[in-house]
Each structure stands twice: as structure tokens, then as C-alpha cells.
């Protein structure tokens, strides 16, 4: 009922649910081992930045395009080609269609 057979193995989500439950239990235990003197109303909730003053909220947030810039930087050559291909030109869309059609026809016709 729960498991599926993949031919060379199987997958049973119930096992994984057990793993998740255990993980949550461990998380709960670790959390309950934490400090008891934490109060939400005091200045304890303020972020601690190695003693530096906190900037205004808008500048503190790590924006979407800041993430993975290294990935993009190291694959610059690949992305330059890729972005050039995604030209946004309607004619190119149809051109790709014709090109793929031609390639497919050559493959089927020759082989």
C-alpha cells in the first residue's frame, strides 16, 4: 500500500516519516536544553553583529540576486552563451523549431 517497487529497489515513505519524526524529537530535545532565561520583551531579541550597530532593515536583508553570485561568476562563459540564445526574439523561437525539425528528420531519415 505504501511502498513502490522500482525494479531494482523500493521506496517506502513511512520509513522516511519515522526518520523525520525522530529528527523533530531530537530538535525538540536540543531546544529544551537551551537557556531558560531568554525573554522576548527585553533587548535579548536584538541581532548581535559582533558589536557593530545594526543598519536599517532594508540594508540588512540578503537579496535574491546576491545569492549564488559565485555560481554565476564561475560559469560566466556558459551563461554568456545561454543568455545570448534566450534572445526574446519571436523569429528565433520559430527558427529553433525549424532547426530541431531538420535535425530530427536527418536522424530519422539517415539512420
Amino acid at each position: 500500500m505504501f511502498s513502490i517497487d522500482t525494479g531494482s529497489g523500493f521506496w517506502n515513505p513511512i520509513l522516511w516519516v519515522l526518520v523525520i519524526i525522530i529528527a523533530f524529537l531530537m530538535m525538540y530535545i536540543l531546544r529544551s536544553l537551551g537557556r531558560k532565561d531568554y525573554r522576548k520583551t527585553t533587548e535579548q531579541i536584538k541581532p548581535f553583529l559582533s558589536g557593530n550597530p545594526e543598519l536599517e532593515k532594508d540594508k540588512m536583508h540578503v537579496r535574491g540576486s546576491n545569492l549564488y553570485w559565485g555560481f554565476r561568476e564561475s560559469l560566466k562563459g556558459f551563461y554568456n552563451v545561454l543568455l545570448k540564445l534566450h534572445s526574446g526574439n519571436t523569429s528565433d523561437y520559430i527558427l529553433w523549431f525549424v532547426v530541431i525539425m531538420a535535425i530530427f528528420f536527418i536522424i530519422i531519415g539517415v539512420i
Binding site: 540564445l85 534566450h86 526574446g88 528565433d92 523561437y93 529553433w96 523549431f97 532547426v99 530541431i100 525539425m101 530530427f104 528528420f105 530519422i108 531519415g109
Partner: peptide, 27 residues
């Protein structure tokens, strides 16, 4: 029939978003 097969698969593949005929899809 070969031609028909190529036309059908490519045209429907384009409408299903097969690269490199996928560019209409994100737009």
C-alpha cells in the same frame, strides 16, 4: 510517414516546452 512523424513530434514537443523550443514558456 517519416515526415509526418517528425512534424508531429517536433510541433507537439515545442508546445510542450522541449529545449531549445522552450523559450515561449517562461515568457
Amino acid at each position: 510517414d517519416k515526415i509526418a512523424f517528425v512534424l508531429l513530434i517536433t510541433a507537439l514537443g515545442m508546445k510542450a516546452g522541449l529545449v531549445p523550443m522552450h523559450m515561449w514558456l517562461p515568457d
